[in-house]
């Protein structure tokens, strides 16, 4: 298995950001009650991840060697401004799309998956291309997890869930079962 394909599969399924590393749980639980919304948020997240990955590569090559202690601050500022930028671009290009997902965009800033992506690709010393593939896999994995979760929750709404389980407790258990199912991917293409 080539290096790039493994990075992609690993981030997408084996080390799924949400179900293995518990990242992006706020949107995972907050925005997963409808499938259509979940998929849109997932796509927006992929986009922000790709831009963040590019920016992180730029920062680690040109800025951070001189001021390593600025790593965290610069990353978080880059993410925040990327989200703002994406918001502006979408507003300009497609007001309809903006109205459809505008509310969810600012949420992405506080999605820890994106900061984790930037930090991980820095610590693993990924190249530009590797970083992009990593971002694509991680974002795709987040989207898959979000869509599956949303589908299950929509279904759960129709059933008579015991009162004490309702809400976050049930979501947490569903997430646990999803995470359990994703363990089947462990070791995929590692040999």
């Amino acid at each position: 298995m080539s290096d790039l394909a493994w990075i992609f599969i690993s981030a997408l399924l084996v080390n799924n950001f949400t179900l293995y590393y518990f990242l992006g749980l706020c949107p995972f639980f907050g925005v997963s009650s409808k499938v259509s919304v979940a998929v849109r948020l997932g796509l927006a997240t992929i986009f922000v991840m790709i831009i963040t990955s590019l920016a992180a590569t730029f920062l680690t090559t040109f800025v951070l060697p001189h001021a390593p202690y600025l790593k965290l601050i610069s990353f978080i500022i880059v993410i925040a401004s990327t989200v703002q930028f994406v918001e502006m671009v979408i507003k300009k290009l497609s007001p309809t799309l903006f109205r459809a997902m505008g509310i969810f965009l600012p949420l992405i800033t506080t999605n820890c998956a994106i900061l984790f992506l930037a930090l991980t690709q820095t610590s693993k010393e990924y190249t530009l291309v590797q970083g992009l593939v990593f971002a694509l896999g991680a974002g795709g994995g987040f989207t898959i997890a979000l869509a599956l979760m949303a589908g299950l929750r929509e279904e759960g709404e129709l059933s008579k869930v015991p009162n004490i389980v309702k809400g976050t407790a049930l979501n947490m258990i569903i997430a646990g079962l999803l995470s359990l199912a994703f363990m089947g991917f462990a070791g995929l293409f590692s040999a």
Binding site: L19, Y20, Y21, F22, N163, I164, V165, K166, G167, T168, A169, L170, N171, M172, I173, A175, G176, L177, S179, L180, M183
Partner: peptide, 25 residues
């Protein structure tokens, strides 16, 4: 072993929340 793995984290927090819901009720 599952408790040391990610699914165990989700499930355990789920159970704890369940317990608090039960107390509340």
């Amino acid at each position: 072993v599952i408790m040391a793995l990610p699914p165990g984290g989700f499930l355990m927090l789920g159970f704890i929340l369940l317990f608090f819901n039960w107390l509340e009720q």
